[in-house]
Write a protein that binds this DNA or RNA. Structure first.
Lengths: 347, 347
DNA sequence: CTGTTAGCGCGTTCAG
DNA sequence: CTGAACGCGCTAACAG
């Protein structure tokens, strides 16, 4: 268990000064060829690597950026991470990933940790609890301390920084409109409670599509799922309505996949008796029976853009930097859970 | 964009020395109560936090550990990360996650990066390419440099360090045995090419179960899937055999779920015509039709144990530390893809 | 061609 | 009670 080799040790070995070694290793012509080669060979043999801590301290930058996400067991976030890693590699940065577990406390803990000089900038998707509490001082402090911040996915309007968001309204519209085109007459939405902004936005898109097509809005068909209780039970209630839906839009993959599961249990045919569409093109969608039509969110693009914006800000020289909000469009991925022959054509 | 506050700046503010400030903030009784309070108040107001880089450099430890995994878009790895994060939090450590993308080069790059003083220890699941190449010098160097290393999941026998592995043989045995108990007569395995050790081990368990039950071994039923080509096409061939299987064991979730998909296409009933079992209890298994019986791998337990072992080594004082290999048992998660009435009882 | 010095931010002697 | 000096490992400006 020998400890790491340092400039100092090499210097002692050859009985020269530390700076001579430093220069020699950088191939400086100030140092005689002879000494240079000797030192280089020795360093190579002992696998010398400059200590990053010391370099970072000296350069006042670390070439690493911090990422705080609420949960990692989500396909969307893993895609975001892939995107971030991708551009981080290209531009010579490292990524430090932290999980807030949707907790306000842990989000702050993570931010404090990262802010102490460890990273050059931070990318955050805000925890649900923080969004609920509506206390955002930790973000403001961060910005006050001059540490670049990019929010993505779950963002906060009032914080002045770069942002990357999904076009949730457009996506919700896309989904609902698709069901309408497929001939559905009673379209339900499985959404989140009111404090989750992405759920609200996707619902807004849903309502917009209904409105444009002169569909009535039926509150019975708007199910706000409380994740503290059984998701299956709540969705089940929808199927037991006297006037049940013939189309369902789940604002995430789990809700939609669970709806498929329950439809099967009820002996309904998908998509003939009921069409189902999800949001986020994750791992599950491809393996349900039938495969789930879904609104793709392009997580890795979001990750890429988020880091690019962050690095722009970090590496920006002048003082007139101005923040952007990028909206990433969604796409419809057609699969068999909605391949319904339009009713008006046939029946 | 004011830059971060430091001891130096506080010292200048009150016209005292840096060390006075340092002591005051630590509540040292060497400093007069008056000065102490004043400085503390000022520091709190400006949200002073000691620079981690400087601390780490001074203390020669960083309280962060590195994690290198081949891929993040895998439910298993996200569970491992959760487990690691969990004990990291408890014990005051941070985690730096890096992706090797199954590439030998990137694995080395990541290790070099982490080894330069950034982390106190490293946890790795070896990339497929590394396993294929069988060149493990980077691990040996790391150990030579005195940096604690824990391998998990994809491990290398010949490297002398702590290890945490799944009981893959036991799991394969469990899966195959279950199919036998369900009355399957011709059991196929969807496995990996021969250089992937976990695939080999799961197959070994499968063969053991066949052997114990006096089942013949039919090479036609052993399908080594080449992921460079279409998984669906390869599995499809299995169904077209003149003597097709009535039970399938997929060594991972994707293979098993794909088998379900194809069985549907062929118009087969699951589990009556064909029973299917997977490995790894991921997100997909719960949402196939029927839900997939599977061998659960306890990723988060593996993560917890891996970090615990690493911290044991890091914090160990004496020189007689000896390495362990922990084997994490698997469990059978019964769902409907194998709920077959034993043939010998009925038919 | 080589060495000295200073400084990144911090904590810890040791003198005063 | 307070401050100067040192060292963690490294680089860069400046002397020699």
């Amino acid at each position: 268990m020998k400890s790491k080799i340092t400039l100092k040790k090499i210097a002692k070995e050859f009985d020269v000064s530390i700076s001579t070694v430093s220069k020699a290793l950088k191939g400086s012509h100030e140092i005689s060829k002879e000494v240079r080669e000797k030192i280089k060979a020795f360093a190579a043999y002992y696998n010398y690597k400059p200590n990053s801590l010391a370099l970072n301290l000296r350069n006042q930058k670390t070439k690493t950026i911090g990422l705080i996400i609420p949960e990692i067991v989500h396909h969307f976030f893993t895609k975001v991470i892939s995107g971030i890693e991708h551009v981080a590699n290209e531009r010579g940065y490292n990524v430090m990933i932290c999980l807030s577990n949707e907790s306000y406390e842990k989000e702050i803990l993570n931010m404090d940790m990262l802010a102490n000089g460890i990273v050059d900038g931070i990318i955050v998707s805000v925890a649900k609890e923080t969004e609920e509490k509506e206390t955002y001082n930790h973000f403001k402090e961060l910005i006050n301390n001059g540490i670049p911040l990019v929010l993505f996915d779950m963002v906060i309007e009032e914080i002045n920084c770069n942002k990357v968001i999904t076009d949730d309204i457009g996506g919700g519209y896309l989904a609902c409109n698709h069901l309408i085109n497929m001939g559905c007459k009673r379209i339900a939405i499985l959404t989140t409670p009111d404090h989750i902004s992405v759920g609200i936005k996707r619902k807004k898109g849903y309502l917009k599509a209904l409105h444009e097509n002169n569909y009535p809005i039926d509150e019975d068909l708007i199910l706000k799922i409380d994740e503290k209780n059984s998701i299956e039970d709540q969705i089940n209630n929808l199927f037991e309505l006297t006037n049940p839906p013939d189309g369902i839009f789940g604002v995430n993959e789990i809700y939609a996949a669970t709806a498929i599961k329950i439809a099967h249990k009820k002996g309904l045919e998908i998509p003939d008796d009921i069409a189902i569409i999800g949001f986020t093109n994750g791992l599950i969608s491809n393996f349900t029976t039938p495969p789930l039509t879904t609104v793709a969110q392009h997580g890795s693009t979001m990750g890429e853009r988020a880091l690019e914006l962050l690095l722009d800000e970090i590496e920006y020289q002048d003082t007139d930097y101005k923040y952007k909000t990028e909206v990433i469009k969604t796409d419809l991925i057609m699969r068999n859970s909605t391949k319904k022959i339009p009713k008006n054509t046939f029946k």
